[in-house]
Simulated scan of single mutants.
Amino acid sequence: MINVMFMQSQSFYGADSELHAQLLRYMDRSQVSLSVALTQALRETPEISAKLYFEKIPGIVVRPTEFGRSREDMRGAGDYAANLVRTFGGLLGLAGFIRAHRIQVIHGTEKPRDAFYGTLLAKLTGARSVVHMHVSYGDWLASNVKWALRNADAIIAVSPFSAKSIVDAGFAAGKVHTVLNSLDLASQRWNSRSTAREVRASLGIPEGAVVMGVVSRLFLYKGHRDLLDALARVKDQMPDYRLVIVGEDDPRAHPGGGSFTEELKTQAAELGISQNIIFTGFRTDIPQLMESFDMYTMPSWEEPFGMVYIEAMALNKPVVAWRQAGPEEIVVDGETGFLPAPKDIEALGTCILQLAQSAELRAQFGRAGRQRVEDYFSSKRMCADVVSIYQSIVGRP
């Protein structure tokens, strides 16, 4: 039995939190004993508060933890001083918990407080540390995250593309492990429902229109610009369609650039396709929105994995993305969707047009996509892969 503690310092329940919740929910209890150091901070929108999700997971020990505030939330020297005191007290108490419960592995994301505090606590208590990288390595990573990666006992990458970026940055290949993400198909969130007509009506989409969608934070590398350019290339051949763009601006990824949403609206107007584009802004009803799509179209650039692709496939949606990075691990070109060559805008438009013109092809790809998610992206497989890494770093078979 290996005693494992997860770090959940961020209050937002994002894709990385969902994956770690899956691990906590489905790992074999005959092999691991599980706990989570859990932030007590709540988001203004309860539906996206990590605390509320992790507290509902059965069979784990929840250790309420003061992680301090993130750097973006602090203003002035007084805030920093008070935060330092709170954080020191929280970590001191957590170190006592680790020793009392004989924690052997501390598992966190690449988020700075997860990675740095988790690795530091492992060093202080004699535990092993795992940093689970849900992004690719880049110079933009905080210095304390880079320190954590250098000192971690294992680094988990979510795709071969991500793993290569870590090894290429100089980290020992022997401690970098690839574990593909999974989707919790036991949850009703990602099983088909009959809400498409109602959602389309709420968005003002006419009956019979072909609906494509993209769900992401709004910034350059998610490929919205390429998508709009591709649609403009084929607009005269397309049946009536709507592109639903779900998400809000991410100023951190578009610094000093103003509103990326407004840039996209301007681009659509210049291309003469504004009437076909719908911007929803931030939404929490993502599965319902995705159920209303006929296809999922996100030609993002160097996506480390792309959970949203397997979410779309689970809902029987064909996928169109660039043939590189994470999507290559997920989408089978010509079977579950299309993967045109990166930056080939004409090919991207042709792929979208081919799907838009054939409901039969969309249904065929959609069925194959759902089957692929069931076969290759199960929680059971992901959990087994992670447990084998734990066993390797604590020296147990």
Rank of each mutant, 00 (worst) to 15 (best):
S216K: 08
S187F: 14
P397Y: 13
S358V: 13
V36F: 10
I98R: 05
P299T: 10
Q10F: 10
A209Q: 05
Q354Y: 01
C383A: 14
Q391M: 12
S259I: 05
L185G: 09
G334D: 10
V105C: 11
S358T: 13
Q10P: 00
Q267P: 00
A368Y: 01
V167C: 09
Y137I: 05
R242P: 01
I60R: 01
L289S: 02
R197P: 01
V61W: 05
R29I: 12
K123Q: 13
S70P: 00
H177K: 14
K222M: 07
S192R: 12
E374T: 13
A82G: 05
G223D: 06
W301I: 11
K164D: 09
D236V: 04
V394Q: 10
G89S: 10
M295D: 01
M307F: 03
A115N: 07
T280R: 12
S143K: 12
L94S: 03
R370M: 04
G76Y: 01
S292Q: 00
V210S: 00
Y376S: 13
H132A: 07
R372Q: 08
A230I: 06
S379N: 11
S182V: 01
V61H: 11
L289E: 02
R372G: 02
Y221S: 11
Q104S: 11
R362T: 10
A268H: 08
S129K: 02
V246F: 04
D294Y: 01
R71P: 00
Q391F: 08
G108M: 06
A325G: 12
H134W: 06
L361I: 13
R225M: 06
Y26N: 15
L94M: 14
A312N: 06
I310D: 01
Y137K: 05
N181T: 12
E329K: 03
E291D: 10
R283G: 08
R43W: 02
A253V: 00
D28Y: 12
N151T: 10
R381E: 06
I286N: 07
T119V: 15
L180K: 11
D184K: 14
V211Y: 04
I205E: 04
Q391P: 10
S136H: 07
V131W: 00
E291N: 09
P342W: 08
V130C: 02
G258M: 06
S136C: 03
Y13M: 15
A196K: 13
M295P: 00
M307L: 15
V105Y: 09
T297P: 00
E303M: 09
A82M: 05
K56L: 11
A37V: 06
Q267H: 14
A321C: 12
H107A: 08
R372D: 02
C351F: 00
F293Q: 03
S300H: 05
A268I: 07
I106N: 04
A253H: 04
I330P: 01
S129V: 03
I389Y: 07
V215S: 10
M382W: 08
T39L: 11
G78S: 07
